[in-house]
Amino acid sequence: MVLQCAIIFGCLALGELLVWLTGIKLPSSIIGMLILAFLLQVKAVKLRQVEGMANFLVKNFGFFFVPAAVSLMLYFDIIRAQWLPILVASAVSTVVVLVVTGWIHQISRKFF
């Protein structure tokens, strides 16, 4: 488990380092995720060296953002004032994403 943590936190630390060095506007965690997938692909890291910890984190990641959802109580005023744009924009946009992604995929499958 310690080795698994070392690998996962190592990827995260590399991500932090890249953000610090280049100043790119990307979350360090996303870069860390890409680094981990890359290391697995080139066999520098073996699946069994990370799988246990990774499965634990992925399966439970809903729990990790409960505190963020609780912090929502700080923004009740904003939500009360702007619930209509938030609701309508999110719902309409979700339908648009569903339809556009599906259509484009069905159409592009015919060409490639």
Binding site: C5, P27, S29, M33, N55, L57, F63, V70
Partner: peptide, 22 residues
């Protein structure tokens, strides 16, 4: 004070998504 111990695991959890991606 309590929440930050939980929230701390968010970033490693995203890194862990590299496994299903692979």
């Amino acid at each position: 004070e309590s929440g930050r111990y939980i929230e701390f695991w968010l970033k490693p959890a995203i890194v862990a998504l590299g496994v299903p991606l692979y």
